[in-house]
């Protein structure tokens, strides 16, 4: 029983670390702030949640204690990290950061200039 739980814990922590590494690579390689934000906020959120679930299961299986603060932290990160990504992305758009040069569609720009009502009629 304890060997299986060690494997589960190790898998979860390794998965979280690899996801965080992928997020870091995405932040370096992707071309513009919006795609970088996409990589960072999603991957890092799931990576940290995996690590925390691994830590929680470690203390539960091996030491037999339920650490409710880790559960609260998982919930807290799940709520706040995507909202932080949304706010950073919106602040970047509102301060005029350009999209990647190969982007094809920018509906928010048309909506801001008031053309979106004309579009719905045609």
């Amino acid at each position: 029983m304890i060997e299986i739980s060690k494997f589960i814990v190790g898998y979860l922590i390794l998965q979280g670390a690899i996801l965080s590494l992928i997020a870091a690579i995405g932040v370096i390689k992707l071309p513009d702030p919006y795609t970088r934000n996409h990589a960072a906020s999603k991957n890092a959120t799931l990576g940290i949640m995996s690590i925390l679930i691994g830590v929680f299961l470690y203390f539960y299986f091996i030491h037999g204690e339920v650490n409710s603060r880790i559960l609260l932290a998982i919930l807290f990160i799940f709520i706040t990290a995507p909202v932080a990504g949304h706010l950073i992305s919106r602040a970047a758009y509102n301060s005029g950061v350009p999209l990647w040069k190969n982007s094809v569609q920018d509906d928010l720009k048309e909506a801001k200039e008031g053309k979106i009502e004309n579009r719905s009629t045609d």
Partner: peptide, 13 residues
């Protein structure tokens, strides 16, 4: 709207 709604929940935590 998103920020304020999340704030209402998170402040209690």
């Amino acid at each position: 709207l998103i920020f304020q709604t999340v704030t209402k929940i998170v402040v209690f935590i």
